[in-house]
Write a protein that binds this DNA or RNA. Structure first.
Length: 460
RNA sequence: GCCGCCAUCGUCUAGGGGACUAGGACGCCGCCCUCUCACGGCGGUAACACGGGUUCGAAUCCCGUUGGCGGUACCA
């Protein structure tokens, strides 16, 4: 199979485009074929180099490699003009001076019930000649045969009056020249397909096989947009998602493996993916499920790989945090180990475990709840026990604190929560024994003293 | 308006005439585990849009209605 992913650089690569790229890639890998990346920039006005960079960057982050390209559609202008001349000379296409306004007026009257046919002239835009009779059938791998009666089709404009070619023409020529065998793209292209088929037919060429993917919607059921937060691939990366988890989640949007498994490695996706099993109805992107799945991948990751990913993430979003973590790699590795099972995204690490590297202000609400007079009493006693520990490790800390709980005859949380608030500033953290041991005796005692003092003065 | 696509739990889906009192996953609820938060375990909630056919039998096939979506550019 020879496939292609052909985004237009008119905006960031969104998850819909990412899924299209993924499906193409899975097919290419599975079949031992190749994947071509083509940038559809025939609309110079709306295309930008930054967007091309963004798309390349997004695909690279997703670890979706292409075998050929990127080729810029605009670079193929010479070939496009050549084919255009041929169609013109063979009478399959013609110049027409009908203005956009005239066509619009015609459409207002006839809608798409009767396609627009232009009058041939010496100059103007180039239109492909379509006869009123007959129909063009798109044999879609996902939808089956879809028929378009020619009466409803306009004579499509394939080149502007200035000679520049238009999308439906360029795509057909490029797919043909690249010997593309399978075109897998979004369903929004379905109405374009007969036009491309007609171009191919005029050229006497064998068309590729098509598969139109159902569209992706946002959580509200409407078209995906920035408003949904993680709509672009970069947003996903910045939100702390793992590429493999994103691939897994995206693959299951619109495609069911048939088995009851949900967590599928990329290798499994490659062997099991079946384009003909892709669903025909649109799917909603569900950030909640994406988050859950990312958590599954984080939990199953090797600690050092996870630490590396977290550090990289910190580098890109929080310089201060990254520096703090770099200053103590051993502590960082342990911090990751004791936080791992609580993370859903890479971004969750710092809020949860940052206190192990930097002191943070105490949350007033947490302080009021746990550092009242009774809490301070227990915290002061806790302080003594910690001070007396010989070897300050997790086992010893556990032993000391559990002993205190037993002696006081209180609920465990009544000892642990004041201590947690004292060292972390909040009521949530990794396990208290691990956290205290990792923080070390000196820093723990300092924070406990500070907390005792602050809460005492606050209450008087 | 017109052209086209689509229609199973809130969401992603399994299902392709009898195995369906419709399965799984996320979410949600309850219980358990428990030092917080998570994780994990157990249990529960919840769907075949509607109406006609076809058939001994329909979530599965056909038609219509309704609804959603896409397209309707000298955009891609």
């Amino acid at each position: 199979m020879r496939l292609r992913f052909a985004p237009s650089p008119t905006g960031a690569l969104h998850i819909g485009g990412a899924r299209t790229a993924l499906f193409n890639w899975l097919l290419a890998r599975q079949s031992g074929g190749s994947l071509l990346l083509r940038i559809e920039d025939t609309d110079i006005e709306r295309s930008s180099a930054e967007n091309v960079e963004q798309i390349l960057d997004a695909l690279s982050w997703l670890e979706i490699q292409f075998d050929e390209g990127p080729v810029m559609q605009s670079s193929r202008r010479g070939r496009h003009v050549e084919v255009l001349r041929r169609l013109l000379s063979e009478g399959r296409a013609y110049h027409c001076t009908a203005t956009a306004a005239e066509v619009a007026a015609y459409k207002r009257e006839h809608g798409q019930e009767r396609g627009f046919r232009g009058v041939e002239s010496a100059e103007g835009a180039v239109r492909l000649r379509v006869s009123d009779s007959g129909k063009t059938v798109v044999n879609d791998l996902i939808r089956g045969p879809t028929r378009f009666a020619h009466v409803h089709l306009d004579d499509p404009v394939i080149a502007r009056a200035d000679g520049s070619v238009l999308y439906n023409f360029a795509v057909a020529v490029d797919d043909l020249d690249a010997a593309i065998t399978h075109v897998v793209r979004g369903e929004d292209h379905l109405p374009n397909t007969p036009k491309q088929l007609l171009v191919l037919e005029a050229l006497g060429a064998e068309p590729p096989i098509y598969a139109h993917l159902p569209l992706l919607h946002g959580p509200d059921g409407r078209k995906l947009s920035k408003r949904h937060g993680a709509a672009s691939v970069q947003d996903l990366r910045d939100a702390g998602y793992l590429p493999e988890a994103v691939r897994n989640y995206l693959a299951l949007l619109g495609w069911g493996s048939g088995s009851e498994e949900t967590i599928l490695s990329t290798e499994q996706l490659i062997t099991r993916f079946d384009i003909t099993r892709v669903s025909r109805n649109p799917a909603r992107f569900d950030p909640v499920k994406m988050r859950w799945m990312n958590g599954v991948y984080i939990r199953s990751a090797a600690v050092d790989a996870l630490a590396e990913a977290i550090l990289k993430h910190l580098d890109s979003i929080d310089g201060e945090a990254a520096a703090a973590v770099r200053a103590d790699p051993r502590r960082f590795a342990k911090a990751v180990a004791i936080s791992q099972e609580k993370l859903h995204t890479l971004a969750d690490f710092w809020p949860l475990a940052g206190f192990l590297f930097l002191r943070r202000p105490t949350d007033p609400k947490a302080s009021r709840r746990w550092l009242d007079a009774d809490g301070r009493l227990r915290l002061a006693e806790t302080r003594h026990r910690l001070e007396d520990i010989g070897q300050f490790d997790e086992q010893a800390v556990r032993h000391a604190l559990e002993g205190l709980v037993l002696e006081l005859g209180c609920r465990p949380g009544e000892v642990y929560q004041p201590l947690r608030v004292a060292i972390a500033g909040v009521t949530v953290s990794p396990g208290i024994f691990e956290s205290v041991a990792l923080l070390g005796r000196e820093e723990t005692l300092k924070r406990v003293d500070a907390a005792l003092e602050a809460s005492l003065s606050a209450s008087t």
